[in-house]
C-alpha cells in the first residue's frame, strides 16, 4: 500500500485531483450517465441537440446535473456523479476532444494542456533478436 494521502468524509481514501467513481458516485450520477449512454445512438444525439431541456427531462436529471450540462461545466458534471466514459459521449456532441476536456477541467488553455502532455514526450523501443520479427 502507498502512503495514504488523506481522508475524505466516510473514511474514503482521497487521491489528489481525482474523483474515484464508486457506488456513491454511480448512484448520484445515474440519470446523467444514463442520458450520456443513450448518445451511442446518433438519433439520440440529434434529439439532444434539437432540445436539450426536453432531453434532460426525459432522463430525469437532477437540478445540479442540468445546471452543469447547461454551463458545460465538466467538473460540476463529475461532482454530480458523471463518469468520464459516459461524459465523453456528451463531449463528442459538444465538439470537445479529450484535450479540450483536460483544459476545461484544469483551467489551462488547450495549447498549454497539450504542451503539458508534451513535457513527458519520449519514445523508448526494444526489439529482441528473433528471426520471426527481424525484417
Amino acid at each position: 500500500m502507498l502512503k495514504q494521502t488523506g481522508n475524505a468524509g466516510g473514511g474514503k481514501r482521497a487521491i489528489p485531483g481525482t474523483l474515484v467513481f464508486d457506488g456513491d458516485a454511480a448512484q448520484a450520477g445515474y440519470a446523467l450517465n444514463a442520458m450520456c449512454y443513450s448518445f451511442n445512438d446518433v438519433a439520440n444525439r440529434a434529439a439532444f441537440a434539437a432540445d436539450e431541456e426536453a432531453y434532460m427531462d426525459r432522463f430525469g436529471l437532477t437540478p445540479a446535473q442540468r445546471g452543469a450540462v447547461r454551463a458545460r461545466d465538466v467538473i460540476a458534471m463529475l461532482n454530480a456523479g458523471g463518469n468520464v466514459y459516459y461524459l465523453a459521449k456528451l463531449a463528442g456532441i459538444l465538439g470537445l476532444n479529450v484535450q479540450d476536456l483536460g483544459a476545461l477541467q484544469t483551467g489551462m488553455s488547450v495549447d498549454d494542456f497539450k504542451a503539458a502532455l508534451m513535457d513527458h514526450s519520449m519514445t523508448e523501443t526494444r526489439v529482441g533478436d528473433d528471426e520471426r520479427i527481424v525484417a
Binding site: L117, M122, R126, G128
Partner: peptide, 23 residues
C-alpha cells in the same frame, strides 16, 4: 515468457501509449 518487442511512446492523445509483444 520472453519479451520480443516493446514500444513506449508519450503522448498519444492524453495517454502514455505502449505496445509489448511477449512469447
Amino acid at each position: 515468457v520472453r519479451e520480443l518487442s516493446s514500444n513506449y511512446h508519450v503522448p498519444i492523445s492524453n495517454t502514455a501509449a505502449a505496445t509489448v509483444l511477449l512469447e
